[in-house]
């Protein structure tokens, strides 16, 4: 029987029935709360997802513009500056810092970009030719990277929310499909066991009562017999023989009534 396995191992006592009932109550409240949390998170999640989708599409455009401004640099400088740029990179001017955002108890980090002052690795790039394009290209790319940082925040939020929602949903489902049915099963089991005990007890009591009654009847008959014996010590013994069988019959009749 599957029901037997799907309950907790408790002794079917009234005390554990009480505990189980309290547990069921708790599970239901928890379920409601978690469900609500999951819904709130999912709502936020969908919103973020939509924004990611938009931002990713927008990014394509932003990066194209940035690429074109790099093409402009190549055009103006009249050569490829890639190598020189790679070699003169020293210290990041464009950095990020993380801050936190609280959504229904979940801390979502968000990146924020900032520019550090004073370290300009490429100030002289294109000094003789194309310097203005280089500066403009830097601005364009800085704007593009800002957009990328924003997208990265969204994506981090997405990954974390995804994880959190999975956990919450797992909990909701666990409560809904495992804990609640199991607790209910346990309660049912305890109840049936208790009923069984009740019936046994009732039968036992009945049995005891019956026995008592029979004993009383027997005692009574004994006493009566002795009394009669004492009275009729001198009377005819056949009379005694007559009364005996009649008594036994009556007793049998009594038993019949009971069962």
């Amino acid at each position: 029987m599957s029901g037997a396995a799907d309950r907790e191992a408790v002794f079917p006592t009234r005390q554990s029935l009480g505990i189980m009932k309290a547990k069921l109550q708790g599970a239901q409240t928890g379920h409601d709360l978690l469900k609500r949390k999951s819904e709130a998170l999912t709502k936020r999640f969908r919103e973020i997802t939509r924004r990611i989708d938009e931002a990713k599409r927008k990014m394509g455009r932003v990066m194209q513009i940035a690429s074109l401004s790099l093409a402009e640099v190549t055009y103006a400088v009249g050569g490829n500056i890639g190598y020189q740029i790679q070699e003169s990179a020293r210290s990041a001017r464009f950095r990020i810092r993380a801050k936190q955002d609280n959504v229904s108890g979940v801390l979502l980090p968000a990146f924020e970009s900032y520019l550090t002052e004073g370290n300009n690795d490429f100030a002289m790039t294109g000094l003789g030719k194309g310097g203005q394009q280089v500066q403009r290209c830097r601005e364009t790319y800085a704007r593009a990277v800002e957009a990328l940082v924003e997208l990265a925040s969204l994506q981090t939020a997405f990954v974390i929310l995804d994880e959190v929602i999975k956990v919450v949903n797992r909990r909701v489902n666990a409560i809904e499909h495992v804990i609640i049915p199991r607790t209910e099963n346990t309660i049912k089991y305890i109840n049936s066991e208790l009923d069984e005990l009740d019936r046994e007890e009732f039968y036992r009591l009945k049995k005891v009562a019956n026995k008592k009654q029979r004993d009383t009847a027997a005692d009574f008959a004994e006493m009566k017999k002795r009394k009669e014996e004492r009275e009729d010590e001198n009377q005819a013994p056949e009379q005694e023989a007559q009364a005996g069988p009649a008594d036994i019959l009556a007793a049998e009749e009594d038993e019949d009534v009971i069962f």
């Binding site: 401004s69 790099l70 890639g82 740029i85 210290s91 993380a98 290209c137 790319y141 990277v145």
Partner: peptide, 26 residues
């Protein structure tokens, strides 16, 4: 908290552009 840099794996033009934006750090 300590994560303050960006990193990039890309072709020459992408890397050059992003470095121009100032993300390069050695």
């Amino acid at each position: 908290r300590d994560r303050q840099f960006l990193a990039v794996i890309g072709d020459e033009d992408s890397v050059t552009g992003l470095l121009l934006a100032g993300i390069g750090h050695v």
